[in-house]
């Protein structure tokens, strides 16, 4: 996934996830990697008249008890660690993306 605000990918992924939940689907996991790890930054502070991408994600993760994984290697490159990660997100390895590919009926990538 691309970075939030920089690219629409974060918004599309959020809207898609919300719509899939609304249709009764089980979301096994949302995996954030590349610049997508920036979605988890609790220091994110956008202007008040715009959507707050991180807060939207956190609410979705908590309300629906979904596993949101932030790729550890991508996070470390970008200065994202446990001290800046917001509620609802967890840091995990790339293997968790492979597990998704093995287990999920469908896998959708939102890329730049």
């Amino acid at each position: 996934m691309e970075g939030p605000y920089q690219h629409e990918a974060s918004d599309s992924a959020y809207q898609f996830t919300k719509a899939a939940i609304a249709k009764g689907h089980e979301i096994l996991r949302v995996f954030f990697y590349q610049d997508g790890v920036l979605n988890s930054n609790k220091l994110m502070d956008p202007q008040a008249d715009d959507r707050h991408i991180r807060k939207q994600w956190s609410a979705l993760a908590i309300e629906n008890n979904i596993d949101f994984i932030v790729c550890v290697a991508a996070a470390k490159r970008r200065g994202i660690n446990d001290t800046v990660i917001a509620e609802g997100f967890k840091i995990g390895g790339l293997g968790m993306l492979t597990e998704l590919a093995i287990e999920a009926d469908r896998l959708v990538t939102f890329r730049a």
Binding site: Q15, F16, K18, A19, A20, H25, R106, V108, T109, R111
Partner: peptide, 15 residues
């Protein structure tokens, strides 16, 4: 978006 989800139900997806 609901229709988008419907298309994904029916198909594997290539981005």
């Amino acid at each position: 978006y609901a229709g988008f989800v419907g298309l994904v139900e029916e198909n594997k997806t290539a981005s």
